[in-house]
């Protein structure tokens, strides 16, 4: 194999005095001196959140305004830091959510434990839990940093549903004459 001898050049006199380099550096800094700032004035200006951002986990309702969570507790069990605590309950009749059998009686996410990994969103069979755009959480006590069910729904709001899983299921049930 051919060997290519790379010549190691000694520093020239100009390079040894550092002066051309210092001058070049000063030209660079003065160029930046006259440019507008690169920074955001944070509380007033907010950064643009890219799609797919994993912010604070929230619970969402379906387009009919019904709870989507059926308290299967998969998210509670998959949660690596054990931040989610669900107390399952049965659905009270007459509330319009009799399409499902169970709903969470209490749904707490401890934001001091949450690591924003998004596994809860990934595992949810009902697409009921989403990590949305909120990135700053603050509170005066530990208790305040636990998001209860009402706040989770307030933050989550309603998300458009692509599948209408339970409606499809009911229609299929009616088609098949009461059984599926």
């Amino acid at each position: 194999m051919a060997v290519i001898q790379v010549q190691r050049k000694p520093l020239s006199l100009a390079e040894r005095t550092y002066l051309p380099q210092i001058f070049g550096g000063m030209m660079t800094t003065i160029k930046y001196f006259f440019r507008p700032p690169e920074t955001l004035q944070y509380p007033e200006e907010r950064p643009a959140i890219p799609p797919g951002y994993r912010g604070v986990p929230t619970l969402v309702k379906d387009p009919h305004g019904r709870e989507k969570c059926v308290s299967c507790q998969l998210c509670e069990f998959v949660c690596p830091p054990k931040a989610i605590r669900i107390t399952p309950g049965s659905v009270a009749p007459g509330l319009g959510i009799d399409n499902v059998e169970k709903a969470p009686q209490a749904f707490d996410i401890d934001m001091l434990r949450c690591i924003y990994c998004g596994l809860c969103e990934e595992v949810c069979p009902e697409e009921a839990i989403f990590l949305k755009n909120q990135y700053s959480m603050s509170g005066y006590s530990r208790a305040e940093m636990v998001n209860h069910k009402d706040r989770l729904y307030e933050m989550g709001g309603t998300l458009p549903d692509k599948h209408f899983k339970w409606e499809a299921k009911k229609a299929a049930e009616l088609d098949a004459g009461g059984s599926h």
Binding site: I30, Y32, F33, R35, P36, P37, E38, T39
Partner: peptide
């Protein structure tokens, strides 16, 4: 201020 402007901060 000069430091900030050189580093493109306000």
């Amino acid at each position: 201020k000069v430091c900030a402007w050189i580093q493109r901060r306000p």
